[in-house]
Computed example of a mutant assay.
Amino acid sequence: MKPASPGDMLTADQCATILKALADHTRLRILESLLIEEKCVTELVRQLRCPQPHISHHLRILRDAGLIEGLRDGKQVCYRILPRVQRVLANRQGRALNFGCCELRFPEMVLAGMGHTR
């Protein structure tokens, strides 16, 4: 699923898929972590202190919602925010993701980790 570009509107089903993907504490923590920098599954497991299958499950949901992508690096898979989602973030001065159906704002702490200031 493609997140909306600024000015685009998502269908109700697309919006619901994104909102479901973001409606979990672990998935929000993963998304916030990936906003700071690309990370491999092992790094996310260590950072979030969750079992690998749990992290992989949540990564799949975020990937299926069109928010992140996995890139294989040998035996490891590293994840990053999709470039088009990063562009949407950049278009909001690094403060929010606007999906057309809703806007997600990030805590100042996350923005500081990304190098953005208000």
Rank of each mutant, 00 (worst) to 15 (best):
G115T: 05
R72Q: 12
Y79W: 14
I61P: 01
E69G: 06
A23C: 11
A4E: 02
V77L: 04
I36A: 13
P51Q: 12
K20V: 02
R49V: 04
L48C: 10
R29P: 01
G70F: 03
C15I: 12
V77M: 10
I68N: 03
E108H: 05
R29M: 06
I18Q: 13
M109C: 08
I61F: 08
T17V: 15
Q47R: 13
L97Q: 04
T17N: 09
V85S: 04
R29D: 07
P107F: 01
L31N: 06
R27A: 03
I61V: 14
R118Y: 09
M9W: 15
A12T: 08
L31M: 14
L104H: 00
L19Y: 02
V88D: 11
C101E: 09
A90N: 08
L89M: 11
G66D: 05
L67W: 00
V88S: 15
Q86N: 09
D8I: 07
I55T: 00
G66W: 09
L104D: 00
A23I: 03
L34V: 07
R87W: 08
L89W: 06
V85Y: 07
A23E: 13
E108R: 09
L22C: 13
C15T: 15
S33K: 03
D13L: 13
M1P: 10
L48W: 05
L22H: 12
A65E: 02
G115N: 08
R95I: 06
L48E: 09
S5C: 00
L44D: 04
R95D: 06
E38N: 09
C40V: 08
A65F: 07
R63L: 04
A90R: 08
L67R: 00
L10W: 03
K75N: 14
A90F: 01
D24E: 08
S33Y: 02
Q52R: 15
A16Q: 15
R46F: 12
V45M: 06
Q93K: 12
M114I: 04
G7H: 00
L28C: 07
D13T: 15
Y79E: 02
G70D: 00
L97I: 15
R87Q: 14
E38I: 07
T42W: 04
L59G: 04
L44G: 05
L34W: 10
L62T: 08
F106V: 00
L59S: 02
D24T: 03
Q52S: 10
Q14F: 05
R29T: 02
F99A: 12
L28Q: 13
A90D: 10
M109T: 10
E38L: 11
R87I: 08
L89F: 04
Q93D: 10
M109L: 11
K20M: 12
L89H: 02
A90Y: 06
L34D: 08
H58G: 03
G7F: 03
G74E: 05
I30A: 10
A4Y: 02
Q52E: 14
P53A: 04
L67H: 00
V85I: 12
L31T: 08
A21V: 07
D64K: 03
R29N: 09
E37K: 15
R92W: 07
L44C: 06
V85H: 06
L48G: 04
R80C: 10
E69M: 05
M9H: 15
Y79C: 06
G94F: 11
R72K: 13
P51H: 05
G74Q: 07
V41P: 00
A21E: 07
T17F: 09
V85Q: 06
N98A: 09
K2Y: 11
T26I: 04
A112W: 02
I18S: 09
